[in-house]
Structure formats: C-alpha cells, structure tokens
Design a binder for these strands. Structure first.
Ligand SMILES: NC(=O)c1ccc[n+]([C@@H]2O[C@H](COP(=O)([O-])OP(=O)(O)OC[C@H]3O[C@@H](n4cnc5c(N)ncnc54)[C@H](O)[C@@H]3O)[C@@H](O)[C@H]2O)c1
Ligand SMILES: NC(=O)c1ccc[n+]([C@@H]2O[C@H](COP(=O)([O-])OP(=O)(O)OC[C@H]3O[C@@H](n4cnc5c(N)ncnc54)[C@H](O)[C@@H]3O)[C@@H](O)[C@H]2O)c1
Lengths: 233, 233
DNA sequence: TCGGCTTTGTGAAAACGTGCACAACCGATC
DNA sequence: GATCGGTTGTGCACGTTTTCACAAAGCCGA
C-alpha cells in the first residue's frame, strides 16, 4: 500500500545527508563495512543522537548492538536524495566562476555533469570550457530540453542574476543554485539554493568582532544605548 | 533595563543581516533614503515581521508610521557585524579556486582584501595572483602576523583541508571559511563556515526527486525549500 | 489639540530542531 | 535458553526560530 503521505524529511536532515553520504562512501572505499552512529557522528562532527534520528527517516536500517552496514546505507541515502541517476546542470555565465565550475571535476564526479553553458557575450560563445561548448543565452531552451536538464546554476554578475533566473525558468528548469549576490524571485514551486561568499565572510566577521570585544571589554558591560533620536547622521 | 550579559544576536538573524545590508546599500546608492520593513522584506524575500524582529536586535532605530532611515541602518548593521574596518584574509591553496577567489574583486570590495596566499606547490610559490605573491605554506605564520589576519580561507583539495586548518590555527587565525568538501576539526573557540557545492546540489536533487515522485504519485503538495515571491503582486 | 492613518516593536503562540535518556533489541557467550 | 555488553530507535523536554497580532507611537491635516 502506498503511504498516504510521502515520507517528508526535515530540511535540516536533508542538509546533513550529503555529508553522511560522503563520509560513508569514503569509509567504504577504505574497506570499512560497518559503522555505529557514534563513529559516523564523530566523523561528521555532530551529535550521535542526531545521526540516528536523521537516519531513522530513511527507515530502520540499523542493527541494534551492531550498527549500520555502510554499503547499504550509502545506497539508501543515494536513493532518498535522488542520486540514483545523474542530474545534468546548465550553467548561466561563462566568466571566471562559470569556467572554474565547468572545469571542476568534483562536479561531474558526484553525478552533476555540466550539460550546457550559456552566456550573452559573443566573445565567449563558441569557446569550449570544461569540454562543453558555450552557447548563447537565447539557445538555453533547446539546451535544457536536449538533455532534459532540471537544475540551473547562475554564475552571472548580480545585475544579471534575475534575468538569468527568468531565462532558466522559461527554459523549464525547476531548481536553481545561485552564486550571484542577489536575491532572485522565482515562481512558486521552483527551488532555489544560494552560495554567497560575502554573507559567509560577514558572519565570520561578526564572530571575530564579538570575540575581540569580549576580550577587551569587561564582562559586565551593558551597552547604554540611547533611544535614538534625530540621528540624521 | 541594562542587561548584564552582552547583547547576543540569534545566529539566524546574523545570517540575514548581510542580506539586508546589501539591499540597503544598493537602495541608498539609488537615492532611496527611507524604507519600511515591508519594502525591505519584499526585496529580501522574507516576512516583514522577521525583518522588524531582526532589526530590533540592533536597537530601536525605526520610526513608527514612517519606517527606517536607510543610511543610519546601514551604519548600524555594519557596526554590529564588525564591518567598520577591513578584515584581511589569507587563502590556503592557490589552485583554480584559490586563484579565482584572489582575483575576485567582490572580495576586497566588501572589506575582505586578500592579505596573503600560500600553497605547498613550489611551481606556484612565487607567482602572483590577484596582485598578491604566493608564499609557501611554511611561511603562513609571518604572513598572518604581518597583517594581523584573523580569517583564513581553505581552497585546497579535501585531503589537505585538515592540514590547512591546522596550519591556519597554528598561525593564529580564529575564523575559517572552508571550501573543501571535508569536515575539519578545530579547537574550541575557532569559528568555521563552509561552502560545499556538492551539498547544495544534492539538496536540490532531493527536491527535484520529490517533485517528480509527487507528480506521478498522490496529490500531495510539495513544499519547496526556499521559494520567494508570491505569484501575484 | 484631536483623530485618522501608518508602521514599528514585541509579547505570545506555533513550528521546528536538538539532545538526553532509556526501553527494545541484537548477537555472542556460556 | 538465559544473561550480558552494546547499539538502535524514539518519546520527551528543552532551546531556537518563525509567525501572528496588536498596542504604542509618530506624522499630518483639520
Ligand atoms: N569569481 C569568484 O571567485 C566568485 C566567487 C563568488 C561569487 N562570485 C559571483 O559569481 C558571479 C560571477 O562572477 P565572475 O567572477 O565569474 O564574473 P565574470 O564577470 O567573470 O563573469 C560573468 C559572466 O556572465 C556573463 N553574463 C552577463 N550577463 C549575462 C546574462 N544576462 N546571461 C548570461 N550570461 C551573462 C558575462 O558575459 C560573463 O561572461 C558574480 O555574481 C560574482 O559575484 C564570483
Ligand atoms: N574549482 C572549483 O570550481 C571548485 C568549486 C567548489 C569547490 N572546490 C573545492 O575547492 C578546493 C580546491 O579546488 P581547486 O579546483 O582549486 O583544486 P586545485 O587542485 O586546482 O588546487 C588545489 C591547490 O591546493 C594546493 N595544496 C595542496 N595541498 C596543500 C596544502 N597542504 N597546503 C596548501 N596548499 C595545498 C595545491 O598545490 C593546489 O595548488 C577543492 O577542495 C575543491 O573540492 C572547487
């Protein structure tokens, strides 16, 4: 019987499964066939209970008193994440980043081969990067359809990111990974992931700043902030 | 009234402040001087109440019935994030990614100039990328101290990431941004951020897979991970 | 000064995520 | 076949984050 609702995995868990997967794959390649949640937790840098709860969403695939069979777990995680087949991606923007990504093997190696690259710059159209010929943005539709691509990567300047997103959606892509430092709007039902370097660095800066403030200031400080009046600054 | 403990901003808020900051800065450059939480929320793709609560951690800097003064808010966010001065970074690994990062202006433009690059490959040591000369990893200590660097970026292969992290920590760096697909161990008190391409793509693959499963299966609504924009408006 | 309109700031509730603790269970050993 | 050490799977309590909803507050025109 089909379940009434398809098992839904918490977003936080989905974000950790790829990490478990990578560790388990490495361990298996090293000849490790079985692991406990404690060992996996250690390698992943998380709590063991969290590992068990995460894995429990896949089903009860562990053996009490023993642990998990690595190969089987790899298979289950791959299945759950939809990694049983390749997901070709199309890259929009063949600049520094786009070229680096296209040439990066860790991309195709993990089941995400570059199925196409497009740009608007005629100087770049026609050149070959990472073994793929750069096409013009206007050809994105056929490119996407030819390989049945559903994931797009935006590597354009921020000012062109929304255009790129629109073009991707028009072409039929339903998931987007955005490297441009811009919030993009997409219709309902399209998934968007983002990688924003400046945000990551600024988060680190915040912690750095707290650290130094805490070190030099006395620990009892309260910030005497005024009620902010006419701060026309 | 006065809190004994230093104001602590929730991590989720810290992660959004850089986005608000970027939007506000752009708007200010476009001549916008005032904004309501609704407008900012629209541009940031989040809920307006969340914007207000986030900003309230900085203090009460809005004006009821009017909104926020953009320039003042920019100043306050920058101050809170510790962006009132530059944070030079040291890059470990001068390969494809390391060179792309070093040559990327959006890095220094936002207050994170590349203060040094190190590698172990003698063929790369001595060359100049992004205006900075590549030094040997063994010189990382002096490089870090010379410019009082506290943030390090790992752009080595995964197999060398832990070594790179250890070298960074030894050199005195207290925050690390890791681009290698490896979990790194660091002593207590060191902040670590990570950017993992494969993880992001695999999260998208999961949602893609659910979508297609749902389409052929029952009529259950799938909830995308991070979709913005209402259809109307 | 007043009242109507707008928007903030924030309590409180709901939703989500984490970690403890332990019963249930497995395999091994005697 | 009973006992034992070891590990899973999960109920529960706790912490964090999001969202709602509304009183308080500012602005403006009458
Ligand atoms: N270079 C890095 O190390 C780095 C790191 C992090 C983030 N980023 C971000 O990645 C994006 C790209 O960076 P980059 O260094 O590759 O820039 P780049 O200028 O080298 O490349 C941008 C490319 O996009 C193309 N382009 C412009 N408008 C387009 C459009 N509408 N459709 C298709 N292509 C279009 C341009 O022709 C160019 O080839 C930027 O948003 C940047 O902020 C770059
Ligand atoms: N290239 C990309 O587009 C891309 C994208 C995302 C993530 N990554 C990740 O970034 C990392 C680097 O990728 P890359 O393509 O630049 O690889 P790369 O092989 O081009 O460069 C790696 C560099 O690190 C140096 N190195 C090796 N061991 C070192 C050590 N112990 N200390 C200092 N330097 C050392 C090597 O000499 C080399 O110059 C990898 O972990 C990769 O998975 C790359």
């Amino acid at each position: 019987m089909a379940h009434r609702t398809r098992r839904r995995i918490p977003e936080a868990t989905v974000a950790r499964l790829p990490i478990y997967l990578r560790i388990l794959t490495e361990q298996f390649d090293d000849g490790v066939t079985g692991m406990s949640s404690d060992q996996l937790a250690e390698l992943a840098g998380v709590n063991a209970a969290k590992v068990r709860k995460d894995l429990s969403y896949l089903g009860s695939y562990g053996t009490r008193g023993v642990g998990y069979e690595v190969e089987f777990l790899v298979y289950q995680i791959r299945r759950e994440l939809g990694l049983t087949h390749d997901w070709p991606v199309v890259i929009v923007g063949a600049g520094n980043l786009g070229q680096a990504l296209a040439g990066y093997n860790g991309f195709g190696d993990r089941g995400f081969p570059v199925g196409g690259i497009v740009d608007v710059d005629d100087a770049k159209v026609g050149s070959v990067v990472g073994g793929v010929r750069v096409r013009h943005l206007s050809e994105i539709g056929p490119v996407v359809k030819a390989r049945n691509i559903s994931i797009g990567v935006i590597a354009t300047p921020g000012s062109a990111a929304q255009d790129a997103a629109d073009a991707l959606v028009d072409a039929g892509v339903t998931s987007i990974l955005n490297f441009a430092p811009t919030v993009i709007n997409v219709p309902h039902g399209i998934s968007v992931g983002k990688v924003d370097l400046a945000v990551e660095l600024q988060i680190l800066a915040y912690h750095e700043q707290r650290r130094t403030n805490a070190a030099q200031g006395s620990s009892l400080v309260s910030v005497p902030r005024e009620t902010h009046r006419g701060a026309s600054a």
